[in-house]
Design a protein around this nucleic acid. Structure first.
Lengths: 195, 195
DNA sequence: CAACATACGGAACATGGTTCCGCTTACCAA
DNA sequence: TTGGTAAGCGGAACCATGTTCCGTATGTTG
């Protein structure tokens, strides 16, 4: 689920050259389509952009979640890796937590429809949900624990629940000038503070 | 947009008897379908339940939003009216605010898909969004202002933004035992407190 | 270069929203 | 009561989109 290419590197028989080429092309096309039409961009549109048939998409990315994960993998990794870095470089664990949550929010808010898809509960997005959680919950948990240990926040909040809450608050942040997801998230984090 | 029946009461020419009957039947069918399949229940399902053709649904409720509004109107009204009542009967404005938000959350959480629809940004739900806002934002604003005047919360938060945030936090609360929307909302409200 | 497996394209199917029009029926006036 | 009329009805037909499947094309290998 996290292996792109297979140009030769990982296990299994080497894939055909055209297959690898198409996979790359598809990723580019999907990324572009996601920007203009959101992560719900019609399969046919993505296929057309890439100049392939729809069957080719399904062969490489059986579910939409697989495609989305592949497109955003690097950014999710970057976000995950930023956690420990922030913890090491920030003045307090709480500051690190706030900084990290902001990264997460900025990421979600700039991907049209991603927050919606993440929380939709639709079975088609199950692996998307799972990927984000597997990668980010441990990081968030570490930040929460550090801040709790430092006595800066209440110690009784689950990282999973916090991430879901934050993800939820990011929904629809792009098409409503009156709603500022960042401010709401800030409020939520403030609510975490002890005293 | 808020006139059901027209049995004779309001303006315009009196509707035909079968039309009024069908409208009632449709409301019942929709309410039932919403409970079992959520507010996204297929139009054909609702029509079948009511024993009418799909055309009849569109004639009475041109958009899904109209149907949803009609189904939940009474509960939204009740929620709106509870605002002033709570304010009058609670020990503090802040308590009234918390109580009212809880009412709102309970309402949203028990209607599968409603929170999602409300925040979806989909043009089809525009009038739904508008109805909720028209009715509830003033109530929420009144509660916020009372609490702010009493020095219990920060005075700089817009009622619209708070309601959207709370609505967002309610998304997906039904199909994930690990996520408790009520707790998240509580956290958000805690973040509002001064001190 | 032959033969085989892999991969491709896109037609065909499934689902669900939306429109439209010929038919039915409630209502009213004579 | 009855005929005319407009309001209302049903559901076929149409459109958009996701998903599957198989005949064809092509990379790869001996």
């Amino acid at each position: 689920m996290v292996d792109i290419d297979n140009g030769s590197g990982s296990s299994g028989p080497r894939k055909r050259a055209d297959a690898r080429r198409n996979e790359k092309t598809l990723l580019d096309a999907a990324a572009a389509a996601f920007i203009t039409s959101g992560v719900d961009a019609p399969v046919r549109d993505i296929a057309a952009r890439a100049g392939v048939g729809v069957g080719t998409i399904y062969r490489h990315f059986p579910t939409r979640a697989d495609l989305i994960v592949a497109v955003y993998q690097h950014q999710v990794e970057a976000c995950a890796e930023a956690g420990p870095t922030l913890l090491a470089n920030s003045s307090t664990p709480h500051a690190a937590l706030v900084g990290w949550i902001n990264l997460f929010v900025d990421f979600l808010v700039t991907k049209h429809g991603l927050a919606e898809a993440l929380q939709s509960g639709d079975a088609a997005f199950e692996t998307l949900h799972a990927y984000f959680l597997d990668r980010l919950v441990p990081v968030c948990a570490q930040l929460l624990e550090a801040a709790a240990t430092a006595g800066e926040i209440r110690p009784d909040l689950d990282a999973y629940e916090l991430l879901r809450g934050v993800g939820n608050l990011c929904i629809g942040a792009n098409n409503d000038p009156r709603y500022d997801a960042r401010r709401m998230v800030e409020l939520l984090i403030t609510g975490l503070r002890l005293h």
